[in-house]
Amino acid sequence: MEQAGTPANDLGSLASLVKESSQKADRYCAQLRRTNSRLLIFSILTSGASTLVTGVTAAGGPVIGEGVPGWRLACIVGALFGFATTVSTSLNAQLKYSERLSEGNQCAARLRLLNTALATGRRTWEEAVKEYDDILRAYPEPLR
């Protein structure tokens, strides 16, 4: 396999290409990690708020308002927080952030190992090209 702009048997060019791909995979992982963390934190906060609103209301009656309108308001607020929790948790699961992050981390790790092997001369041109090609095939999404 010969990448565009990489002359045959030029380990330096291949090393640059591998390093660039490694940086791309790292950026991909960082973005997924941020999004995954935000959704998880949002889910925890809204779940806690829902529990707090409904628990306080159940223990001492409605905090805002009195009678039936106060209970309705407490139920609506608790339901909205519960809905937000469900949506954020479902988005996280449906978009498979954890799985994609795991795959991205594997890709980045393999690229770092290949980069180190190239820098230390532990891979021949043929071995390095084959391994890089395997990484490109195994992890297309992180390297887009």
Rank of each mutant, 00 (worst) to 15 (best):
T57Y: 07
P140S: 07
T116Y: 07
A30Y: 07
I135M: 02
S43P: 02
N92Y: 10
A108E: 05
S50N: 09
Y132C: 12
D133R: 15
N36E: 12
R27G: 07
G82L: 11
A108T: 00
L40Y: 02
I44N: 01
E103W: 07
R34Y: 09
V77E: 12
G82F: 05
F42Q: 01
R72W: 15
G61Q: 09
A58G: 02
Q106S: 09
L91Q: 08
L101N: 00
E66P: 00
V87P: 01
R110W: 05
R137K: 15
L32H: 11
G70F: 02
G48F: 02
N115Q: 13
L136T: 04
E2K: 15
S16I: 08
N36M: 06
I41R: 14
E2I: 14
W71I: 12
S88P: 05
G67Y: 09
T85E: 07
T124S: 04
K24H: 08
R72E: 15
G65M: 05
G12A: 09
R144K: 09
I76S: 11
V68G: 12
P140W: 00
G65V: 02
L111R: 04
L45G: 03
V87D: 09
T6N: 13
E99G: 00
F81H: 05
Q31F: 07
M1A: 13
A30S: 12
G67L: 10
L91N: 05
L118I: 10
A119K: 11
R110M: 06
Q31T: 11
R137H: 11
C75I: 14
S98H: 07
T46D: 03
N105G: 06
P69S: 01
L95S: 11
F81K: 03
L14A: 11
A117P: 01
G55V: 08
T35A: 00
R72I: 15
V77W: 10
V53D: 06
L113P: 01
A30V: 15
L40S: 00
G78S: 05
A84P: 02
A119H: 03
Y139N: 05
N105C: 08
I135N: 00
S43A: 04
G121K: 01
G104L: 03
